Simulated assay, not measured.
Amino acid sequence: MINLELVETMIKEKLPDAQVTVRDLTGGGDHLEAIVVSAEFEGKSRVKQHQLVYGALQEAMASEAIHALALKTYTPQAWQATGQLV
């Protein structure tokens, strides 16, 4: 099981401006959902956005501390359009 705050910190180290919300989907700590909002995503495809986040979590995913990750990425403008808060 990985600490959710650690996952958030790892993402923010790669994307310092990011607003990140991480939650445990199953209660076991290895199936997570992350919502990441960052200006770094501007002009990048969804695949490239996800690759940036996966790159930040590479070590945790390789060690299987994170078994599955549901990932939602947004630019600040796209996030604002959803009307949700991080």
Rank of each mutant, 00 (worst) to 15 (best):
Q58C: 01
H67P: 14
E59G: 05
A78Q: 15
T82Y: 14
T9P: 13
R46W: 07
V47P: 15
L85R: 12
L6M: 13
L71M: 06
Q58S: 09
I66W: 01
I35H: 13
E5K: 02
V47K: 12
K48F: 00
V47N: 12
V20N: 03
A70P: 14
A39M: 12
M10V: 02
L57H: 00
A60Q: 07
L69M: 11
V20I: 05
D24H: 05
H50Y: 06
A68F: 08
A81C: 11
L4G: 05
L57W: 03
G43D: 11
A81K: 12
I35Y: 12
L69H: 07
K44W: 08
E42G: 05
M10G: 05
M61K: 02
V20C: 03
K72N: 13
N3Y: 09
G43A: 05
R23H: 05
M10W: 11
G29T: 00
G83P: 15
V53S: 03
L4I: 07
G29Y: 08
A78D: 15
L25G: 08
Q80P: 14
V36C: 09
E8P: 13
V37H: 13
A65V: 05
I66L: 01
T21Q: 13
D24T: 00
L32C: 04
W79E: 07
W79D: 09
H67T: 01
M61T: 02
A56C: 07
S63K: 08
S45C: 07
A70Q: 14
Q49P: 12
M61S: 02
Y54K: 01
T75C: 11
I66P: 14
I11Q: 03
Q49V: 00
I11S: 02
F41P: 15
L71T: 00
D30V: 04
L4C: 01
A62L: 10
V37K: 06
I66D: 04
F41S: 00
K14V: 07
N3A: 03
L71E: 06
Q80S: 13
A78V: 06
L6Y: 08
I2L: 01
Q19V: 11
K44T: 11
T26M: 07
S63Y: 05
E33S: 09
E40H: 12
R46F: 10
V22H: 00
K72D: 14
Q80F: 11
V86M: 09
A65S: 14
K44D: 12
A68M: 04
A81N: 14
A60Y: 03
Q51S: 10
T75D: 15
K72F: 13
P16E: 04
T26W: 10
S38M: 02
I2V: 11
T21F: 07
L15V: 04
T73W: 06
